[in-house]
Simulated scan of single mutants.
Amino acid sequence: MHHSDERLIAQFIVTRDERLFTQLYQRYYRKVYASCFRFMKEEEEARDQVQEIFGKVFTRLHTFRGQSSFATWLFVLTRHQCFSARDQAKRYRFFSLDAATNHYDFLQEESSMEDRWIQAQLALHRLPLRDQQLLERRYLGNQSIEQLAIDHGLTQSAVKMRLKRARDQARLLGKGSALCLA
């Protein structure tokens, strides 16, 4: 039986049954590893960070409030862990923009839907909080333009313009990744 993330988390918090945690681990291991590898650029370091992340998830799962999806919460934790590890190790790598463009073109051709989703999440989380929330409410929460206008005290035209600017900025940050928000 396939349970939602939220149900697994709720049951795990109550029972501390490691089998429930194992289901979350198996469900997200590949995505977390892919994210870690993108941040760390080394297989062994990425595997180490995955173990650190899931150790933190195990001990901090009770702090998950459900204000976003578990996947988003996990991705933010992943990003923070990898950035912290990189900063601690002082391993900054520099490369030419030509090399980055060529590498990105290769990734774009070979990227799966999962990879494009991760790239979209990366771009989204690099936006200002106001823009993140607006895009999330519109496209992940399926909130109408009319409701967003009411909630923000704006005209519908202003909301549409903010959405367009936020999407454009996300596309730039995602370096043209398939951010399918249109």
Rank of each mutant, 00 (worst) to 15 (best):
L74Q: 03
F58Q: 09
A99G: 02
K31L: 14
H103C: 05
E146P: 02
Q156I: 14
D87G: 14
Q121L: 10
H3W: 11
A89R: 10
M161D: 14
Q81W: 07
R137K: 10
F94W: 13
R162E: 11
R165F: 08
L134G: 02
A170L: 04
Y25I: 02
F37P: 13
I53F: 01
E45W: 11
P128N: 15
S35T: 12
Y104K: 07
H103A: 08
R162P: 04
D5M: 00
A34F: 02
Y139F: 13
A99M: 04
L181T: 07
D151I: 07
D115P: 06
K31Q: 15
A123L: 03
I13A: 01
F37A: 11
R38D: 08
Y33L: 12
R47C: 10
I9M: 00
W73Q: 04
R116S: 10
Q23G: 08
K90F: 09
Q119C: 08
K31V: 12
L181W: 09
K175Q: 14
G176P: 06
L24C: 02
H62W: 05
H3N: 09
I9T: 00
K56I: 02
A71C: 06
H125G: 01
C82W: 10
T22E: 06
S69V: 03
G55K: 06
S69C: 01
A85P: 12
T101E: 11
Q132I: 01
